[in-house]
């Protein structure tokens, strides 16, 4: 019985192959709807920005095909709007949604994490330190040595940046797109030069979103050697204990702590 008083090992509390739910069904569906609408919107919207490209001309090079393009674009826009409303409702009215949002809000630590991750990857300051350069500085501020990778919670700064970008981008795109769709309404409310801003913003925000997804998101969830060829979280929503420990150590430790507490006698004085 003596041994039971010893704290249980991490291994025993969270097994490496234990499955945790990272994205529930609602979140996965929201993400899939976003994928569908975003892809369609990009494919049917880019031709308007790059009208010189032969490929777009061959696809949409007739009045009817072009009309279909517009229809698909607006249909996808409706999907995006519905998806966004669902997400807003989900975040507002479910406990899990509210917790997710709280975890996704940017904090000072995220900036620190980003700097630390970059510095750690670069390894320049460690190299300088080994050469004996800036010894005093590093003695006073060991953070700048970037000896360790930052430890992430449920969402790291990359994921937070992506989430907030999607929120910001969707808001901008839906707002400007709505007024472009309802031009007559827009020009009843605003002068032409304001409407022109909607058009400009819609195009450039689209470029930003497209590039961000193609470069940043695709790297982080597909090409990154850690997950290559693809992280399956968006399909099955599952993450293993091992992944939790390496990728989200702070969350891992929080769960560990919770489980430890649950196993401990409520108060040692009572026994």
């Amino acid at each position: 019985m003596e041994s039971q008083k010893e704290p249980l090992s991490e291994e025993a509390l969270i097994r490496d192959d234990e499955v945790f739910l990272r994205m529930n069904l609602a979140e996965r569906l929201q993400h899939i709807l976003l994928v569908i609408s975003f892809t369609t919107l990009v494919l049917t919207g880019l031709p308007l920005l790059f009208y010189e490209l032969k490929i777009f001309k061959s696809i949409f090079g007739s009045a009817r095909a072009f009309q279909l393009r517009g229809f698909l674009h607006r249909a996808a826009a409706v999907i995006l709007i519905v998806d966004s409303l669902w997400h807003v409702g989900y975040v507002a009215f479910t406990r899990r949604g509210r917790q997710n949002l709280k975890d996704l809000l940017p904090r000072r630590k995220d900036v620190r994490d980003a700097v630390q991750q970059f510095g750690y990857n670069l390894g320049l300051t460690r190299f300088l330190h080994r050469r004996g350069i800036g010894k005093k500085f590093f003695a006073r501020r060991p953070f700048w040595l970037f000896e360790k990778e930052p430890e992430y919670g449920r969402y790291n700064f990359i994921e937070k940046l992506e989430y907030l970008s999607v929120v910001w981008g969707s808001f901008i795109m839906i707002l400007s797109g709505f007024f472009m769709w309802n031009l007559e309404l827009s020009l009843r409310l605003f002068p032409l030069w304001v409407h022109d801003i909607f058009v400009i913003v819609h195009g450039y925000e689209a470029m930003l979103a497209f590039l961000a997804i193609i470069i940043w998101h695709m790297y982080n969830v597909h090409l990154n050697p850690e997950v290559f060829p693809m992280s399956k979280v968006w399909l099955n929503g599952k993450i293993t204990g091992r992944e939790l420990r390496t990728l989200h150590p702070l969350e891992y430790r929080r769960i560990l702590e919770e489980r430890r507490k649950a196993l401990e006698p409520e108060s040692p004085t009572w026994s």
Partner: peptide, 16 residues
């Protein structure tokens, strides 16, 4: 083409 186009259509430039 744009039914109900009001005076706002003139408040801006075309062919900028």
């Amino acid at each position: 083409c744009h039914a109900g186009a009001g005076p706002n259509f003139a408040k801006g430039k075309i062919h900028v």
